[in-house]
């Protein structure tokens, strides 16, 4: 199990078009839907937005990691997008989010997937990892940034 299995090439957008938090989340959900890991876009979105209501997943540092646990997710997956201009993510530091990771998790998930997700979350806290992702030009650059 490694990051590549969760974050595949098809689940990355280097140029998110959405201007609001919700539009960006829609875009990322669409990618996962096309990749057949989500059965019902709307139902999954409800789960994600509910989580956002509790408190925003905009943790600052230009990162947003919306996530949802739902029975309509067939396998754990991550969609990732870069927003060049940044979107308002109700972040804790008030700054716009540029790197947005959408994590989709099925109701029942084995520990291996959870371990990878926790590893990714930990890596994102490091400045140099964020910097490398921000400057990434292709898929391999992103994976490299995490695996360093």
């Amino acid at each position: 199990m490694n990051i590549k299995e969760l974050l595949t090439k098809d689940r990355i957008s280097f140029n998110l078009e959405g201007l609001t938090k919700e539009e960006v989340i829609d875009e990322l959900i669409e990618m996962l839907f096309k990749d057949n890991v989500i059965e019902d876009k709307d139902k999954f979105k409800i789960a994600v937005m509910k989580r956002e209501e509790e408190f925003s997943t905009g943790i600052g540092y230009g990162i947003g990691i919306p996530h949802g646990k739902s029975e309509f997710v067939t396998e754990a997956a991550i969609a990732f997008g870069i927003s060049k201009n940044g979107v308002d993510f109700d972040s804790m530091d008030g700054k716009p989010a540029h790197l947005i990771f959408l994590i989709a998790v099925p109701e029942k998930l084995d520990d291996i997937h959870l371990k990878v997700l926790s590893y990714i979350s930990r890596r994102l806290m490091h400045n140099e990892v964020r910097q490398a992702i921000m400057e990434a030009e292709n898929y391999d650059d992103i994976i490299k940034a995490f695996e360093k």
């Binding site: 989580r51 990691i65 926790s118 979350s121 930990r122």
Partner: peptide, 17 residues
């Protein structure tokens, strides 16, 4: 954190850093 997927670990990492 409530979902226990991401923030729990980000917070842990932040404290360790």
């Amino acid at each position: 954190c409530p979902t226990g997927i991401a923030h729990t670990y980000m917070a842990a990492e932040a404290l360790q850093m």
